[in-house]
């Protein structure tokens, strides 16, 4: 079903609807195993200053098969539109990729995005030729505004980043999904694969997961489980769920049920 039901973002098609972050892994070997097991085709990376006192270590881009993955650099850590625009340009220079997960986050406690700064930065970056995937609170009015300025997706949060609290915003995400003209990617806070399944069941086009996989006891196994959760949710959405009822409806026919002999009926 994945091949006949591709995800298309900014004209590029993907068979996987699961995006993965690359943060918080114990090492690159564990990270690569998780990416492999997830079947993901889109991976996020962050941009940071080189340590001037200890340069030369790491090498995330060397650890990733760049032929295989669409890189999605983020602007994590940026507090204002201006910072995000600057980091976006550095990200494009560092990776050679013009896709950008736009994050404008002034709040360190709940890591909630600034809708006004996000819209402002998105408009500038689309104008500069970026493919912009903005991280947002599930706000349908904002989502439509971001579509209008040319964003490639919107990425509403399920619950606070890294919290693992699951899909706490489903009613609001429904309103973002209703009439969305771009793919809706549920991002942040998903804790277990059933959370991702729930998001896709609602009609979300994809999910992005980092901490729930990186902090699992077995990240590769959890990555596989998330892949199955996303697939199950998507299949469920396409299959069309049953209507809910207030009371029970027996699954077995009510006619022809065996009863004890009726003493009123003569033998």
């Amino acid at each position: 079903m994945t091949h006949s039901d591709p995800l298309t973002i900014a004209g590029k098609t993907f068979t996987s609807r699961l995006m993965l972050g690359t943060g918080k892994y114990h090492d690159f070997t564990v990270m690569r195993a998780a990416l492999e097991a997830s079947g993901t085709q889109i991976v996020t990376v962050a941009i940071r200053r080189v340590e001037l006192k200890a340069p030369g270590h790491d090498g995330l881009l060397d650890a990733l098969n760049l032929e295989r993955y669409q890189l999605l650099p983020n602007t994590a850590g940026c507090r204002t539109a201006e910072e995000a625009v600057r980091v976006a340009k550095l990200a494009r220079a560092a990776t050679g990729v013009n896709w950008l997960k736009l994050e404008v986050i002034p709040d360190p406690k709940y890591l909630l995005p600034d809708p006004i700064g996000t819209l402002k930065a998105a408009e500038i970056l689309v104008g500069e030729g970026f493919t912009v995937l903005p991280y947002i609170q599930p706000d349908a009015v904002l989502a439509r505004a971001l579509e209008r300025v040319g964003c490639a997706t919107v990425m509403p949060l399920a619950s606070p980043i890294g919290s693992g609290r699951g899909l706490r915003t489903s009613e609001l995400i429904r309103t973002v999904l209703d009439g969305a003209a771009v793919p809706v990617v549920v991002d942040a806070g998903l804790g277990v694969p059933s959370d991702a399944a729930q998001a896709l069941e609602l009609g979300a086009d994809a999910a992005l997961v980092n901490t729930a996989i990186a902090e699992a006891r077995d990240p590769a196994a959890m990555a596989h489980a998330f892949a199955l959760g996303v697939q199950a949710g998507r299949l469920s959405y396409l299959a069309g769920r049953m209507a809910e009822r207030e009371s029970a409806s027996p699954s077995s026919p009510v006619a022809g049920v065996v009863r004890l002999p009726d003493p009123e009926i003569p033998a």
């Binding site: 996020t44 962050a46 200053r49 994590a76 550095l90 560092a94």
Partner: peptide
Amino acid sequence: VEIVRAIGGG
């Protein structure tokens, strides 16, 4: 002057 690199992130 800013000198940056890509690192792991979500």
